[in-house]
Write a protein that binds this DNA or RNA. Structure first.
Lengths: 122, 122
DNA sequence: TCGATAATTCGAGTATCATCGAAATATTGA
DNA sequence: TCAATATTTCGATGATACTCGAATTATCGA
């Protein structure tokens, strides 16, 4: 991940509502959640939530797919892993012997693997 | 680390200059760097840099100590580790079996351990 | 085709961020 | 005590960010 991508991803997560959304979407896994449900759950007006979802989307941290009338948002686990890897490498940069093994472990372990597919929502 | 602390730390890193400063300070290790040198290195006016350093400081990602006329800034490795741990837990939240071992590995390895003390600057 | 549902885009208001020169503060050495 | 150095704080400016109601777009079922 490039530095500018990291800045953009960090900025997307650096907001209370958006961090909450992302946490929620991680929990939801590959099924994702419709915009309206996210907004309801967090008690934020739909138009405000739409703004935040667009930011997360632009930063690549969530993807969007239409399912009938709903737009389903899903966390992008690869992207989040990319950010984590960047931060860990960044953090240890110039001193790889200190924690490169850890960075390596993280990237090998593919930390943010989406959980196995769940049942379709009722 | 609490969610609001994470938002604040993420916000501090979500800016090109500040991310560059943090990278630089990580490289510098416990010795840290004086504000002026940081500003020079990045080609940013001193007053602008002071603003950014204050933000990093407020977010707890750097500490400040006076050494004669200079203010030396140092990366706070514990804080950065806290942020990484938060993000990794966050990312895997509700599905610990997927990557808890990785989070554990990261925290055990103390990824952002400051490198051993270097020579005093000339 | 029409009404209902789900969401986004628009517009306007307020707030916070980023920038940078000038002025103020802290420290040192002579 | 005074000039020089290192840095911050102040003030002003322009740019983004956040909020949310109203208007618009897309889709579905009858």
């Amino acid at each position: 991940m490039e530095t500018l991508d990291a800045v953009s991803a960090l900025g997307a997560l650096a907001q209370e509502h958006r961090l909450a959304v992302f946490r929620m979407l991680v929990k939801a896994g590959l099924d994702g959640m419709p915009a309206g449900e996210i907004a309801d759950e967090l008690g934020v007006p739909a138009s405000s939530m739409s703004f935040h979802l667009a930011q997360l989307n632009r930063a690549g941290l969530v993807t969007q797919r239409r399912e009938s009338r709903s737009l389903i948002y899903t966390a992008d686990f690869d992207r989040m892993n990319g950010l984590l890897a960047y931060l860990i490498e960044d953090c240890c940069q110039g001193r790889p012997e200190v924690c490169a093994p850890t960075a390596e472990a993280v990237s090998r372990a593919a930390c943010c693997t989406p959980p196995q597919k769940k049942r379709a929502r009722k």
